[in-house]
Amino acid sequence: MKIVTCIKQVPEKDTRFELNTEDSWIKEQDLTYEINECDEYALEEALRLKEKHGGEVVLLSVGSDLAERALRRGLALGADRAILIVAPREEISDPLMVARALRAQAQVEQPDLILTGVRSDDHAFAQTGTMLAELLHWPHATIVMKVETDEVGKTLKVQRELEAGLLEEVALALPALLTIQQGINQVRYASLKGIMTAKKKELRRVDWISLGLSGGKKIQIERIGFPKSEKKFEIIGGSPEHAAAVLVEKMKKEMKIL
């Protein structure tokens, strides 16, 4: 089974963000990056499917040169090779543009299955995977929490998360696209051997312009900012012991739980 896994590189979750001078994006200098959270789960799922059916796991990412880091990490975890479409940021803050770029490479690779995450941690559109499926005229399922394949790897039975703790079980034939939800599996750690061999694995760069994408972007980010607090809250300062003592008073007098 040939599987393409789309991974996006995003700033680490604990990052304290600053805005650039135009408030159009974050200051990117000196940030540390990681693989988008649900994409890690998607990659793990791909690796497990390869272990069952054989085949190949190809990583695909659209981003700046820096995204090579995330791809190397994915290779260290066990992916076979990687493709980085190097693109200007303004072009790829529209999920349809990203989906078009991904389609161009998917058409070259012709995989049986494409896995993406449900949602990126930076833009949080929850659109790209489903758009890619439509552009390829493939069936898809979103927010997937379980993937089962038949013996020959031709059909899929998957469970999709619904609200209120329910799951919907659906069947699809390959080729298909799934958007993977965090928590579907337990993600492995990269082994030392994995990290060593990752350096030698193929990482191919593709230039944005060479894709010759038509259509233009449909949406754009005008500015970013910090959310405004709707509610006034009180910060309790001082040493941990002092803060704890103040809070205990509140718990007694105001919250009335002591």
Partner: peptide, 12 residues
């Protein structure tokens, strides 16, 4: 960004 920031978007 995990609800740490907001983004204002428009249609092109």
């Amino acid at each position: 960004f995990h609800d740490k920031l907001t983004a204002e978007l428009s249609f092109c």
